[in-house]
Amino acid sequence: MELVTPALGLLFWQVVTFLVVLFLLSKFAWKPIMGALREREESIDSALSMAEKAKLEMQSLKADNERLLNEARAERDRILKDATDAANHLVESARAKANEEGSRMIEQARLSIENEKKAALTEVKNLAATLSIDIAEKLIKRELQDEQAQRALVQSYLQDARLS
């Protein structure tokens, strides 16, 4: 019976001490400890999620880089191709232009030669005509000095022409 009868003194001291302990430990031990634990868990949590985010970011960054690189490569290829095309085109057009120019010059030359030829021929003809006229004039001048003979000739023509 002694064993299961709570003693007043111990009851009193237990209540007082326990409440004091509860109060002081709550205030000065459990509060900072629980706070620190929670804070640390939160910081670990956030660090983990940040690492995860960083990983994702890294991945997207890598993908971005890859994309950029590919784009740059494509751009380079396109530019190279364009340049080649342009160069080819330039050469082609230069060649065509040269050809054209050449043929145009040849044609011009041919035309001028033709013209020169014509002019020369005309001149030659004119000269020949002048010469012929001069010769004829001289001849005629000589012929017409002999009046008798002219008359005879006219007579002969007249005779030939049948007046009808």
Binding site: A7, L8, G9, W13, L24, L25, F28, A29
Partner: peptide, 29 residues
């Protein structure tokens, strides 16, 4: 009878221990 008996004294000792341990830990945190 509100005597500081053996049990009460032992309890005080445990309280000192509790404070020593947990206030140290709280300080560490």
């Amino acid at each position: 009878d509100f005597s500081i008996t053996k049990n009460v004294a032992s309890m005080f000792l445990s309280v000192i221990l509790l404070f020593a341990v947990f206030l140290t830990i709280a300080g560490r945190y």
